[in-house]
Design a protein around this nucleic acid. Sequence first.
DNA 1: GTTTTTTACGAAAACGTTGGCGTAGATTGA
DNA 2: TCAATCTACGCCAACGTTTTCGTAAAAAAC
Lengths: 343, 343
Amino acid sequence: MKPRITLKKIAKEFDVSISTVSKALKNSNEISEELREKIKAFADYYQYKPNSLALQLRNQKTSVIGVIIPEIVHHFFSTVIDGIEEYANAKGYNVMVCLSNESFEKEVTNISVLTNGSVDGLIVSLARGTQQKNDYHHFEALIKDDFPLVLFDRVHDSLACDKVIIDDVGGGFKGANHLMDMGRQNIALITTQDFVTVGALRKIGYRKALHKAGMEIDEDLIYKIDDKQDLYGQIEKVFTGPKPPDAILAVNEIYAAIAMKIARERGLRIPEDIAVIGFTSGLISEFTTPPLTSVVQHGFLMGQQAAELLINRIEHIAPKEPKTEVISADLNVRASTCIKTSK
Amino acid sequence: MKPRITLKKIAKEFDVSISTVSKALKNSNEISEELREKIKAFADYYQYKPNSLALQLRNQKTSVIGVIIPEIVHHFFSTVIDGIEEYANAKGYNVMVCLSNESFEKEVTNISVLTNGSVDGLIVSLARGTQQKNDYHHFEALIKDDFPLVLFDRVHDSLACDKVIIDDVGGGFKGANHLMDMGRQNIALITTQDFVTVGALRKIGYRKALHKAGMEIDEDLIYKIDDKQDLYGQIEKVFTGPKPPDAILAVNEIYAAIAMKIARERGLRIPEDIAVIGFTSGLISEFTTPPLTSVVQHGFLMGQQAAELLINRIEHIAPKEPKTEVISADLNVRASTCIKTSK
DNA sequence: GTTTTTTACGAAAACGTTGGCGTAGATTGA
DNA sequence: TCAATCTACGCCAACGTTTTCGTAAAAAAC
C-alpha cells in the first residue's frame, strides 16, 4: 500500500513547518494567502486527508461507537444495528460491530478490546452465556468508571446504566389477550428456558392476561424449549400433551412457524381449530400459510433510541441517573388468528 | 468517564520514567525484578490496558477491517459478515461495519472515512446506486494506491482487485436444469432489472440451461421486477401473461414466496400445476407452504474467503495479481418442485 | 530615526506508546 | 588502582495532528 500523504511531507515539499501546513489547510489567515493557496492546491492534488487515528488520539475522542450483539444473522439484531447506524451517522459517529456469539468469554474479550480507546461508548445486548453464568463484572467495571454504556433488549436489572427494552410483558399480554378475544380457552405457551429474559418476561405477560381474564393457568400448557435440542420434536409435544390447546402463543417466529407446520400436518385447520401467534423478528411471519399474527418488535426504533441515549451520555447531555426506555410491542393481526383478516 | 490509566500516570506514581514502566510491563529484564513486580502489580490493580489508538498510530497498523454493505437487514449480508468476523477474529482483527444503504454517495463517504487510517483494509459489496451510476472512481483511487480491497457478491469487472463471487450463472443454470428435469416446459424467470448484476447473471444461467436443452427462450416468460414498485402486482402478471408457465425460477426468496402465494390464491397446486424455485437468502424458504426449493448461497463461506483474501493482502502474503474466488451455488431441493421430497 | 504594530511563520507540547541508544553507578577482574 | 563489564534505568525519536505561544522581519506610526 502506498504510504498516505501527511502534513510532514507537504511541509517538506514547500520547505515550511508542519504547523504552517496545518494552518494553511485550515484556512488560517495567519498564513499569507499566496502560500495558503499553493499548499491547498498541492494537498488537494494528492488527496490529503488528516489521519483519523492521530486526530482521535489528540482529541481523545474517536466518534466511534461499539456495538456488541449475540449474533448478527438474526433479523431483529440487524434491524437494531440499522437503527443505531442511522442515528449515529447523522450525529457524525461510526459504528463498530462485534459479535459475542452468545458466549460469555467472547463478550468479555470484545468489551476489553473495544474499551481500549477505540470507541467512545458501547451498545450491548447480553450474550446468552452471560445470562446463564449470571456474571456481570465486566459491565460493572465499565459502569464504575462511568464508561458510556447502553444495554438493549437483553439487559440485566442490577446494572445501573441506560437501557432500551421492549415491553415484553406487554407483548405477551397483548398476544394472550388477542387470543382470548378470539374466544380461545386453552392457550398453550411455547417459550424458552427460564434464564432467557425475554422468554421469561413474555411468559409473565401471558400469565397476567390469563389472570386478569379470570382464567387459571395450566402449567401443562407451558412448554419450555431448549434451543440446542431438536425443535420439531419438542414442539410436537404441544399437540400430543394431555390437554390439546385451541391456541398457541409462541415467543418467537420460528417456534410459531414450526408449530403451524406441525398443526397442519396433523390435519388441524388454522385458525379454525387452532390459532397461532408469534413474535416477529424476520420475514417468516409474512410468508407462512396462513400468514402469522405476530407481536412486532420495533428493532429500528430500538436502535435509534439506544444510539441517542449513548450519544447523549458521551456528550454529557444526559442526567447522571440511568434511564430506561421502553419500546411498546404492537400486535400485527394476520390470518393465523382471525379468519376475516385473511386477505 | 473516568480517564483511563496510562503509562505516564504509573510512571509518576513510582517516580520513574515512562519507558521504564513500559519495559517493566513487557517483562523486560532491563528492569530490576523488584521494581518490575511492583509496577506490574500496580498496573494490574488499576487495570492498565495500552491505549490502542496510540499503538495503532505507532505501529501504523490498526488490525481493523472495514466492511461496507448495502444493507444489513438482509440475511445474506448478515451471514457474510458472520463469516468475515469469524475469520478476522481468529486472525486477530476486528471488524467495522458501515452501511451504504444502496446509495452511491454514502458509499463514497464511507470509503473516505474508513480509509483515513482507521482500517487496514476494506471488504465491500457494491451499492445498487453505484452500479446504476456506473461510477467507480472511488474504488479506482484505492486500487491505484494499492489499498487492500476485496469486493464480494456485487462486484464490477473493470476493478482490478480481489473478489469473491457466487457462481450466479451456475446457480441459475442449476435451477433451470432442475425444473427441466422435473419435466417442465414453460419456465418463467422472475428477475431484477438489468443493472443488478446478480439478477443479470442468474438470467444468463437460465438462458444457458434452456439453450443446452435445445429449448428456445421465450422473452415473454422473463419478468423484470422493479423493487421500488408494488411487488405483488408485478409478480401477478406472471400468471396473467400470454403464456402461463408450469414452473417459475425466481432470483430471490421474496419473489419466489410471493409467486407461490399468488399461485395458491389462484387455485394452482404446487408443485403439480406449477413448480417454484428461489434463491435462498433467509429463512423464508423453509417455512413457506410448501417449503421452497432454493439455490443456496454460501454467505458464511463467502465472508470467510473475503476476509482471508483481504488479510493475505494486508499482510503481503498474496501475489500481486488480483484473485477471484468463486463460490458454487448448490440446490436445496424441497417440496415446491418435487412431490416425493415433501416430507 | 526610533518605536510600535502587524505580518507571517516556526517551535514545542500534547495525545500514549515503544525501542534503540546512552550512561551513571556498581561490580568485577587484574 | 584503573579499566572493563554489568545493571538498571532515562532520554529521545517516531507515529500525525492541532494549537498556543514566541519571534523575526516588515510595515506603520511618531
